[in-house]
């Protein structure tokens, strides 16, 4: 019994610590939402995070134009080879959030660059946008594709530790196994 109580208390203590970490994270998100530190708006929708971040980073909506989000959300039964279907009401709510915060609908510095670069196209992948390609073209494959801790350019947060907070500043890049990126 004593042992069980000790385990319970330890668990609760750990939960307390986790709570602390999460709340300081929230502060960061709030700061980012004011546009002071973010070059893209931070992810601000908890439902979006809950539904989409089980499998991948909750990509900030300001990385793709609104028309791209419309396309992606209308094809969730084949989502880059995965089945990512949602209940119709959830699909509708998340589409509204993503479209309203698409790169061409907001005024964040880097979102504007993504929107201009995409022009009239509605790419399904962030990695197809010319501006994105230009920003990543100097990085050798050994740091991304064949780096087991990264694997793909789609894995933003592997190197951009504050991706969900909308921060992609070059100073913040750390490539796993290689350290800071300096070009």
């Amino acid at each position: 019994m004593k042992e069980k109580l000790a385990i319970l208390i330890t668990t609760l203590a750990l939960a307390g610590v986790a709570g602390e970490v999460f709340s300081s994270d929230d502060d960061e998100h709030r700061g980012a939402a004011w546009g002071k530190t973010a070059d893209v708006a931070a992810v601000s929708n908890e439902q979006y995070r809950a539904e989409c971040a089980s499998c991948h980073l909750a990509y900030p909506p300001g990385l793709l134009p609104a028309a791209s989000w419309e396309k992606i959300m209308s094809g969730l039964s084949d989502h880059f080879g995965d089945n990512a279907e949602l209940a119709p009401d959830v699909t509708k709510a998340l589409t509204a959030y993503l479209v309203a915060n698409g790169a061409d609908r907001v005024n964040y510095r880097r979102s504007v660059k993504f929107a201009r670069s995409a022009g009239n196209s509605a790419p399904l992948r962030i990695t197809e946008i010319p501006y994105f390609r230009k920003e990543h073209r100097e990085i050798p494959a050994r740091m991304i594709k064949t780096n087991t801790q990264v694997g793909s350019l789609s894995n933003c947060s592997a190197c951009h530790q504050r991706a969900e907070a909308g921060s992609f500043s070059e100073r913040e890049i750390t490539i796993p196994g290689y350290g800071r990126w300096d070009d």
């Binding site: 089980s54 499998c55 991948h56 980073l57 880059f80 995965d82 694997g151 793909s152 789609s154 894995n155």
Partner: peptide, 9 residues
Amino acid sequence: KHAKTGKPI
């Protein structure tokens, strides 16, 4: 581990 993204499950 997600087969494609590698994200822990």
